[in-house]
Amino acid sequence: MFGQRTYDPAPGTHYRSERVSAVNGRYFFSTREGTLEGPYFTRVDAEREIASYIRRQRKAEEIIESRGF
């Protein structure tokens, strides 16, 4: 994902890092919004949930835009 979100203030340099991390045998992923989501039992579960999280965020943005907020 190299695109800029509509509400990002300006283009900038963003450094890629691993989104999935393991803590005490459980897996978490970090978001652009600064949250840590999880825990998940496997890395595969965490990676699958990243895709679900992105779909939910995009759907929420669509709903907000359609209501004129």
Rank of each mutant, 00 (worst) to 15 (best):
49 E>A: 12
14 H>E: 13
5 R>E: 13
21 S>A: 11
61 E>K: 14
43 R>H: 04
11 P>K: 07
27 Y>F: 15
5 R>A: 06
6 T>M: 07
12 G>V: 09
33 E>D: 15
59 K>I: 02
68 G>D: 05
47 E>Y: 03
50 I>K: 06
6 T>A: 13
8 D>V: 08
31 T>V: 09
23 V>A: 03
5 R>V: 04
69 F>Y: 14
40 Y>T: 00
20 V>L: 03
50 I>D: 06
4 Q>F: 08
43 R>L: 03
15 Y>F: 08
26 R>A: 02
53 Y>N: 09
33 E>S: 15
21 S>P: 00
5 R>D: 02
10 A>W: 02
45 D>N: 11
58 R>M: 06
51 A>W: 03
43 R>K: 15
2 F>L: 03
6 T>S: 10
29 F>C: 03
58 R>D: 09
48 R>G: 15
64 I>D: 01
58 R>Y: 01
42 T>E: 09
15 Y>K: 10
1 M>Q: 09
8 D>Y: 03
7 Y>W: 14
39 P>T: 00
30 S>G: 14
44 V>L: 09
63 I>A: 12
19 R>S: 11
44 V>W: 03
69 F>N: 03
14 H>K: 13
57 Q>P: 00
29 F>H: 01
62 E>W: 02
61 E>A: 15
54 I>Q: 14
17 S>Q: 13
52 S>I: 08
38 G>T: 08
3 G>R: 10
55 R>D: 14
25 G>Y: 00
54 I>N: 12
55 R>C: 09
46 A>Y: 05
60 A>Q: 13
67 R>T: 11
64 I>P: 00
2 F>T: 00
31 T>S: 13
22 A>F: 00
22 A>L: 04
59 K>R: 08
42 T>C: 07
1 M>Y: 05
31 T>I: 04
30 S>L: 04
5 R>K: 15
45 D>Y: 01
49 E>F: 05
7 Y>R: 13
55 R>I: 07
44 V>A: 09
11 P>R: 05
25 G>S: 08
6 T>V: 04
1 M>R: 06
35 T>M: 13
53 Y>R: 05
62 E>K: 10
32 R>F: 14
32 R>W: 10
40 Y>V: 02
54 I>P: 00
32 R>D: 15
26 R>E: 10
41 F>S: 08
35 T>R: 15
67 R>V: 02
34 G>L: 04
12 G>K: 15
55 R>H: 12
59 K>P: 00
61 E>N: 13
25 G>M: 01
62 E>Y: 01
18 E>P: 00
36 L>Y: 00
18 E>I: 01
32 R>C: 13
6 T>Y: 06
66 S>I: 06
50 I>M: 14
